[in-house]
Amino acid sequence: MENFTPYSAFLGGSLIGLSAALLMYFNGRIAGISGMIAGAFDFKNSEHHWRLFFLGGLILAAVIFNLFAPHVPATYSRSTLLLIISGVLVGYGTRLGNGCTSGHAVCGMARLSIRSIVATVTFMAVAILTVFITRHLLGILQ
């Protein structure tokens, strides 16, 4: 575990929790990113504006952080085809299951929602199994 970074992880996680709490405090909304992406482009719905502002702020903050703060760059070893397959699965799956890591694993679990706990355990277990199969059994993805 030589890459283990518990302090920055806990600090970053706390900021994510603070963000979700403030969104509930001001707008009364759950900070679920997959739902927000879907809702941000639902132009018939007047509630799409704040979602665009949230996503814009998220991107902006991370871009500025990456410009000025030292960080370990990602290697990006995945092929274009795999990125597309994965993206489609994540997009379709999070709509079908009504949430992703933020909506279920953070917001839902913080409210002790049974659905969110079941969803989180399921996608974590499946993701761990996927890495085990591709990285260790088949040895095709590092």
Binding site: I59, A74, V90, G97, T101, A125, V126, A127, V131
Partner: peptide
């Protein structure tokens, strides 16, 4: 809910991106 979580889990495990994380990677 279960099928959605399974599909998301496969996609997440293949590349390591979830919807929030990928947007925060635009700065790369």
């Amino acid at each position: 809910l279960i099928l959605g979580a399974i599909l998301f889990g496969i996609g997440w495990g293949l590349v390591g991106f979830c919807p929030g994380a990928v947007l925060a990677a635009f700065g790369d």
